[in-house]
Design a protein around this nucleic acid. Structure first.
Lengths: 208, 208
DNA sequence: CCGCATCCTCATGGATACTG
DNA sequence: CAGTATCCATGAGGATGCGG
């Protein structure tokens, strides 16, 4: 990106991450380290030459590191510690986007992994979880887990933990649920995730 | 901006504010509502056709409002309530930029008004102000006030309030001071602004 | 296959001149 | 003063090539 030539933190940040696709690449790497192919898949619409360019730029500027994973000759991209600190501004932008999300996906593509960032960003830290619960989310062909503990919310890949229930989830519904908890908790209400039995019923209760 | 075609809050945010110059325009309007000429001056390097384009875009997407100010026929640009909520992500990016600011302005241009955003963003809310103080900052030909109260820090244009001291300030010094308070308070120290006498001496004390 | 590099076309950005 | 109009330079997007 061409320099703005301004001694301003925002301008200098944007010279590093303001280029098209850059923050979306960081989004993918915040979910998990990834190989080139994972990034191509997780960034529908990106041209491969751009991805290669951007990865070089981000590496040069110290946001991303290229490392050899596993058995040796496999290249993997990881965020540097400084790069990981982009979680904050990215979560802020996700919160800011709620008015843009209410109309649903329409014809846009969707990847379940994006919820792993969005849901914790939207769920206000002040929301009290009454009863810890782990809910399986079946979205398309992927399965995620939404974990509600007294410490907060977390969304991640399926792990070995017990599920209290399974929900065949629509992405817009999950985001709406999270955003609802955010909005209502701003009004000093409590968002509570409750699981009924061991079946596919998840109820969100907002109590004053 | 061309759509990313992704049902993701970050992607949809960037479709609104991801275009070059957009966030910097919002930065200017976060400081104060402004006329076209103010924006041209506050955004050194922008081409006038781009500014006009971007203002139209931002108006269409509901970030900016064009309104008639003062005695009638004078157009002024203001942030909508939703647009004002961009303060959060912008402040996050300013915090993220600290490693990029330590090398100083070099040949970049600088406007004192930018401190009005950066300093409150950098000063950690947990920093305890021991003694309330109002310090005048002479930067170039503009004069600002840094107000430290028990409620937090604030930087704004000169107002009628009494000054405890006046500081001929270098922008990099002011930013470094604020960033220092952020860093050290993260390490559980306290940043304290102290004013000595009524002269041009400002001392920053960090106590464990 | 995976991880890019090249080539080409078209959209966007930048500088400057100009106008109501 | 508040923008348009114009022209050129740069960057994005898409297809394809190619070595490991």
């Amino acid at each position: 990106m061409r320099s703005y030539g301004q001694y301003c933190g925002l301008a200098r940040s944007l010279e590093v991450v303001g280029d098209r696709w850059n923050l979306l690449i960081v989004r993918q790497l915040l979910v998990a380290p990834a190989r080139y192919r994972d990034l191509v898949d997780g960034l529908p619409g990106i041209a491969t030459n751009l991805l290669a360019d951007r990865l070089r730029d981000l590496e040069e500027s110290g946001v991303v590191e290229r490392r050899l994973a596993g058995s040796g000759s496999v290249v993997e991209y990881v965020l540097t510690p400084w790069g990981s600190e982009l979680r904050e501004p990215i979560e802020s932008l996700i919160r800011w986007s709620t008015p843009l999300m209410v109309r649903g996906p329409a014809s846009d593509s969707f990847r379940p992994e994006w919820l792993a960032l969005a849901v914790p960003a939207l769920l206000d830290k002040r929301v009290k979880v009454r009863r810890a619960a782990t809910v399986g989310l079946d979205i398309g062909d992927q399965r995620l887990q939404l974990r509600a503990t007294r410490a907060g919310f977390e969304v991640g890949p399926q792990d070995g933990r017990e599920r209290d229930a399974t929900l065949r989830a629509d992405p817009a519904y999950v985001l709406g649920l999270a955003a609802g908890a955010l909005t209502l908790s701003d009004a000093h209400a409590l968002g509570v995730v409750e699981v009924e039995g061991d079946e596919s019923v998840v109820r969100t209760v907002f109590a004053a």
